[in-house]
Amino acid sequence: MKHIKTLNTKNLQNTLKKGGCGECQTSCQSACKTSCTVGNQSCENRKQSF
């Protein structure tokens, strides 16, 4: 594409079928303890990651 560069090619909608294993880190344990930061957590199962 000439006018648009897409930085990520994966689609969040695809995780609807494969996600939800729940092995990921509980967000508040990571560093914050006072704010909910979920979007920056990593997926424990890369196969199920989007």
Partner: peptide
């Protein structure tokens, strides 16, 4: 920490929508 976003992966939609789990 608050600038960390994994554009190639990151959590599934269930994690993103169900919150911190408290």
């Amino acid at each position: 920490f608050h600038f960390m976003v994994d554009l190639t992966g990151g959590p599934c939609v269930y994690k993103r929508l169900s919150g911190c789990g408290s």
